[in-house]
């Protein structure tokens, strides 16, 4: 029995759901961003699997995975800078304590 595309897609769906759960429930900004990275990761896994199982030599899925990596790296760098700035100004990085824009 070989690997099928459905197995990989189900695995990526499970990983994406776990990442969603973490991003919605965790209180620390750092872990929320890490969970978003896990979701990006699941999507990358999907794209690489599509490129593999399409049987073509075009490798478009891998190209898109490269772009997703670029965007998620940029997003993570900015989020870490925002976390440091929030800690400096508000003394906490818990998402439920950062409510100055709520009225």
């Amino acid at each position: 029995m070989d690997i099928t595309l459905n197995q990989v897609l189900i695995l990526a769906a499970i990983l994406f759901s776990i990442g969603t759960f973490g991003a919605l429930t965790r209180k620390s900004i750092v872990i929320v961003v890490m969970c978003i990275e896990l979701m990006f990761n699941a999507v990358n896994l999907n794209l690489v699997a599509f490129a593999y199982f399409s049987g073509l030599e075009a490798l478009r899925g891998q190209v898109f995975a490269v772009f997703i990596m670029v965007v998620s790296a940029a997003e993570l760098g900015l989020c870490m800078a925002i976390a440091i700035m929030l800690y400096r100004n508000r003394d906490t990085i818990q998402v439920d304590r950062i409510n100055m824009m709520k009225w």
């Binding site: 965007v71 790296a73 940029a74 760098g77 900015l78 800078a81 440091i84 400096r88």
Partner: peptide
């Protein structure tokens, strides 16, 4: 994408600078 990375780099430095 390279321009995006450059913008993110400058933005992170500006945000996290003391």
């Amino acid at each position: 994408a390279s321009i995006l990375l450059l913008a993110a780099l400058i933005g992170s430095i500006v945000l996290a600078r003391r």
